[in-house]
Amino acid sequence: MAKKVIIVGIEFNNRSTRGGPYKVGLTQEWIEYRMNVFMKYTMNSLKKQTNQQFTALIRYASVTEELIQKTLEKHEPLPDNIRFVPEEQYIEAQKELAGDAKWLYLVRLDCDDTYKKTLIQQLHEWKPKEGTRALVNQLGYIYDSLRHRISPVKKTSPPFYTWIYKSVDYFNGKRYKIKGGHPAVVKHKHEILTSKGRRNYLVVVHQRNTLNQRLLKRKNFISNRKRVDAILKKFI
């Protein structure tokens, strides 16, 4: 019996059917643009993980099935451990992957961001204390892809974390509650995964992720091309 199974959960446009600002994710233009960003950054980060013992499940709205599949056909075939799944099949896909494993590690990642290439290996090696619910990455970078510059960042509870569940509990419906989103993750018993100065995540600011444009107001950007390229190489 496997001791743990690591699943990277990525939302693509699965919230689009809720309407409001999310509905733009139902359009061909949005899907094609975001897929290009995903392939360039997130996909490369996943493919270059030094340990490939994980599966990434990318959730999409089933009403965009045809658009998703046609867009995927324009890119290189997906590796076996990276799968696009309709929202309605997400839990079943997790259950299939978990098998008889005792522990389920659920890694959160956005579809336009990346993790350091050694993240999955670090998760396999990590030995959490009893009762730990979350492994939190506090140190990372912000990458301004439009100007090719980068800035180190530290956040107490950013959206780069891993939940740890007993598989049997998770598939019986147990969920850790986080009122207000990712800032509340550290209210649960957690451990900081970014030990010894390890910067594990890279937020990619691109033309259309408007919520992250405010990050470009930071003043400590590194613009030297060689230094920026050297940092990016650790992620993509």
Rank of each mutant, 00 (worst) to 15 (best):
A2D: 10
K3P: 05
K4H: 12
V5I: 13
V8H: 00
F12R: 08
R18W: 12
R18A: 11
V24Y: 01
T27P: 03
M35Y: 12
N36Y: 05
V37P: 12
K40A: 13
M43I: 01
N44E: 13
K48E: 09
Q49V: 03
Q49D: 02
F54G: 03
T55H: 11
L57R: 06
I58Y: 03
L67T: 14
P79N: 06
D80C: 02
F84L: 04
F84Q: 04
E87M: 08
E92A: 14
E92I: 07
G99I: 09
W103H: 14
L106H: 06
R108D: 00
R108L: 02
D110R: 07
C111L: 00
T114Y: 00
T118Y: 01
Q121E: 15
Q122C: 09
E125V: 08
E125N: 14
P128M: 06
K129V: 10
G131T: 09
T132I: 15
A134W: 11
V136N: 06
N137D: 10
Q138A: 04
L139G: 04
G140R: 09
Y143R: 02
Y143H: 07
R147Y: 07
S151Q: 15
V153A: 04
K155H: 10
S157P: 14
P159Y: 00
S167C: 11
S167W: 02
S167F: 04
V168K: 15
D169K: 13
F171C: 08
F171H: 09
N172P: 01
K174W: 07
G180M: 04
G181Q: 05
P183I: 09
A184W: 06
K187R: 15
H190C: 11
S195I: 13
Y201K: 08
V203Q: 07
L211V: 10
Q213K: 14
K217Q: 14
K217M: 11
R218L: 14
F221R: 06
S223N: 11
R225H: 13
R225V: 15
K226T: 13
I231R: 02
I231Q: 01
F235N: 01
I236Y: 09
